[in-house]
Amino acid sequence: MSSIQRQIRFESDRDPGFADEIRAMPGCELIDRCIQCATCSGVCPVSTYMELTPRRIIELTRNGFKQDVLNANTIWICTSCYECQVECPKEIGITDVMYALKTKAIQAGVEPKHLGPPVLFKEFYNMVRKTGRMSETQLAVRSFIKSNPMQMWGMKWLGLRLLKTGRFSVKLEHMPKPSVLHTALDHADRIDGRRAK
């Protein structure tokens, strides 16, 4: 992301099919209503950290600028707090668009490989698919190893505080019968906006 890049967008960068795929995902159907008022960017608690604000994400998405939106740090910084979504005067599902873009980035394999959020999301996903439950300590350790091993050292005091208050557990939790969930999830559709064959 630090390399020198062209700053002007060309018509040829657009992928209109991409915009259609996003529109077809649950909660994302109203992006064309956007009036670019930037209420979303204004209320977002983390827009100050974003390469592209939520308003710009909506505009670029509906115009099919796939590479821009999938490579922006925005989608990983979004905490899914829904503030933008409930304040948007046009009732656009902005948080749902952020989710849609995250799944698209992971499908395309362009998510940053050592950034905290995508690493955490994938570890979480793998753990829950396997055990049906989320085990906090195990998840934290697995994510730190892949994103920022040094951070674990900084977390030792936190671990100690949790240990002292009986809130620390290293056990891998699981459903009594996870196998039923494996089968169930294997039969769910991939809702990725592409028309089923």
Partner: peptide, 10 residues
């Protein structure tokens, strides 16, 4: 929020 960020249908 995590699972939803990886695969929506499931």
């Amino acid at each position: 929020t995590s699972f939803m960020s990886v695969e929506m249908g499931a």
